[in-house]
């Protein structure tokens, strides 16, 4: 069945082996009375029709591609943080001189009950390369386990190590013995 012929590049011109019906179908249309004076083969009409065809093909492909690309873009995170208050714990859970990492929505937050200024909270994501910090009772400072960064528990400022910036503060609200984190 395979015919050993060199393929004609895309244009349905009259191939020598075409059957008569096909040859008639693909031959240029005979000139009609309404043909413009451009010539017997109406090149402007043919060009217009071919332009329409190309436009239809491109539009179809665009109409298929656009929803797919839009679909692939993830929606904005709706629950990244929680507005309102998150209960971090009580002063019994986090006694003075200790600290704990809790989740505020999906954001890790470190709560430190400082002796000097009471409960303070900061984003627990180290500003160096993104590891989660912990509280070190021994040195009473916030430390990062990855590269030894140290932050002040009262201000979040960098004490030592590679972090380039202080930890972002989080508003704390104390009601009775309950420690709340006020988020945005």
């Amino acid at each position: 069945m395979p015919v050993a012929a060199v393929p004609v590049a895309g244009v349905p011109g009259a191939a020598p082996s075409a059957s008569p019906e096909v040859a008639a179908a693909v031959a240029p249309p005979p000139p009609t009375a309404a043909a413009p004076a451009a010539g017997p083969a109406s090149p402007s009409r043919r060009r217009f029709v071919r332009y329409l065809l190309g436009f239809s093909i491109v539009t179809t492909l665009a109409l298929i591609a656009a929803p797919i690309i839009a679909f692939l873009v993830p929606p904005k995170e709706l629950s990244a943080g929680t507005s309102g208050k998150t209960l971090a714990g009580t002063t019994t859970d986090i006694p003075p001189g200790s600290g704990k990492v809790v989740a505020m929505g999906s954001k890790p937050t470190i709560v430190v009950n400082t002796a000097e200024q009471g409960p303070k909270a900061y984003s627990a994501i180290c500003t160096h390369l993104g590891c989660i910090v912990t509280y070190d009772d021994q040195s009473t400072s916030i430390v990062c386990p990855c590269h030894g960064g140290k932050f002040s528990p009262t201000t979040g400022a960098v004490i030592s190590g590679p972090p380039p910036a202080p930890l972002a503060p989080v508003t704390v609200s104390v009601e009775g013995d309950q420690i709340f984190l006020v988020g945005s």
Binding site: M1, P2, V3, A4, A5, V6, P7, S19, E21
Partner: peptide, 15 residues
């Protein structure tokens, strides 16, 4: 590819 595409595409369909 020319030989393969010819074999795949240049077949005949009974009318």
């Amino acid at each position: 590819i020319r030989e393969l595409s010819a074999a795949l595409l240049h077949v005949r369909i009974p009318v």
